Computed example of a mutant assay.
Amino acid sequence: MAEDYYSVLGVPRTAKPDEIQRAYRKLARKYHPDVNREPDAADKFKEIGEAYDTLSNPETKARYDRFGADYRQYAGGGGRSGRSSGRSGPRPGPRPGRGAYGNAHTDMGGDVDWEDLLGGWFRQQARGPAQGADHEAELWLTLEEAVRGGRRTVRLAKPDGKSRDYDVDVPPGVLDGQRIRLAGEGAAGREGGPPGDLSLLVRIQPDTTYRLKGRDIHFDLPVTPSEAALGAKVKVKTPSGPVTITVPEGSSSGRRLRLRGQGMPDPEGQPGNLYAEIRVMVPPRLSSKVRKLYEQLGAISDFHPREGIL
């Protein structure tokens, strides 16, 4: 015995029969060699079966709990014997059948039904129609394409190295990380079985102007000093189309203006908002006339933005 049977199944020594069976079913499903192709899967599966075979039987479990690794040398709970009786050791190996490790109803594991345990995996391996495998690919969209949605034609490389065009209906407001499934566009089925699906993982390209946070869209709104001071109506482009933003008078850089419901659409709920953050900009170079006007403004203005701070 390479390891304590309780440790092999990952259960405490106080585990009840149903806990032992649940642990065994989970591990057996994971390590069955017809499912798990790891090099040590067969040995692990055999070890799991041996542990369950011993602990699932009250007689052998009692001897194991008392004598540990030497439990096979004891029979009837007391006398030492060169051979153990009853279910004192692992059962014989799996009976011949489908696959290298027995058929769907192999005797390994007592009352465990392998057809149920592996969820019909063996049925899928039998000859006959079977659904094709699903394929996955990434679908890159601009923010504007994600906001507006609509039909797009995308060219994707197939597993055989060739390319193919697909018509994709992009729902308005799709978010990064969501998936669009194209039914029947995966691998061909076997022996007349239905094809698999193509799953497109949406990726939204970073944008130099707009920042997407959930379904809210943020961007910087440059305004002139006069627009910030006097207020203005500013027409700007957004991913969903042009809008007019009202800049209140006396707006300083950092002020955030919200346009409710103008962000990313939500087909099933409330759309996001559009947030414009004021950025007061000054010209890098001034003409002599404009310079004089700024000088006059500075001379008569009683505004002190650093009062009480510096």
Rank of each mutant, 00 (worst) to 15 (best):
V35W: 06
G261C: 05
M281E: 13
I309H: 10
G150R: 03
Q296F: 12
R148Q: 15
V35S: 09
L221M: 06
G189T: 03
D266T: 04
Y210K: 03
R72G: 13
P271S: 04
R211F: 02
L139Y: 01
A228D: 00
V202E: 03
V35C: 09
L182K: 03
N103T: 14
G254D: 10
V223D: 00
T54M: 10
M1T: 11
N57D: 15
R37V: 10
K237G: 12
L293V: 11
S85G: 13
I245V: 15
Q73D: 14
A15I: 08
G193Y: 01
P33E: 02
D134A: 07
W114N: 01
P284M: 05
I300K: 14
P90E: 10
D160H: 08
Q296S: 13
G97Y: 07
K61T: 06
G79Y: 13
A183H: 09
A42L: 08
M108V: 15
E3G: 05
T246K: 15
A130C: 02
D18C: 03
P92G: 15
Y5F: 15
R127S: 14
P171Y: 04
L293C: 03
S84P: 09
R211I: 10
A137I: 02
L182P: 01
A276L: 06
S251W: 04
M108Y: 06
L310D: 11
R25H: 03
E145G: 08
D34W: 03
E185W: 01
P206R: 10
G186C: 03
A51C: 04
R306S: 13
P206H: 04
G68F: 05
G93R: 11
R152T: 11
L293T: 11
A276S: 12
P159V: 04
P283Y: 08
D176G: 15
A183R: 14
D113A: 10
P225N: 11
P242C: 07
E47Q: 13
A51P: 03
Q262R: 14
I204T: 00
H32C: 07
R152P: 03
R127K: 13
V234H: 05
G76Y: 12
Q270N: 14
G97N: 13
R29H: 12
P33A: 04
R190F: 03
A133G: 12
N57W: 06
G68N: 10
S56G: 06
Y31I: 03
R123Q: 13
D53F: 05
G193A: 04
E59N: 12
D43T: 12
A229P: 01
L286K: 04
S226P: 01
K235L: 08
K233V: 08
Y210D: 07
Q21N: 09
L200G: 01
P17Q: 07
L274H: 00
P284K: 14
T244Y: 02
P283E: 14
G110E: 11
T209Q: 10
D169G: 02
T209N: 11
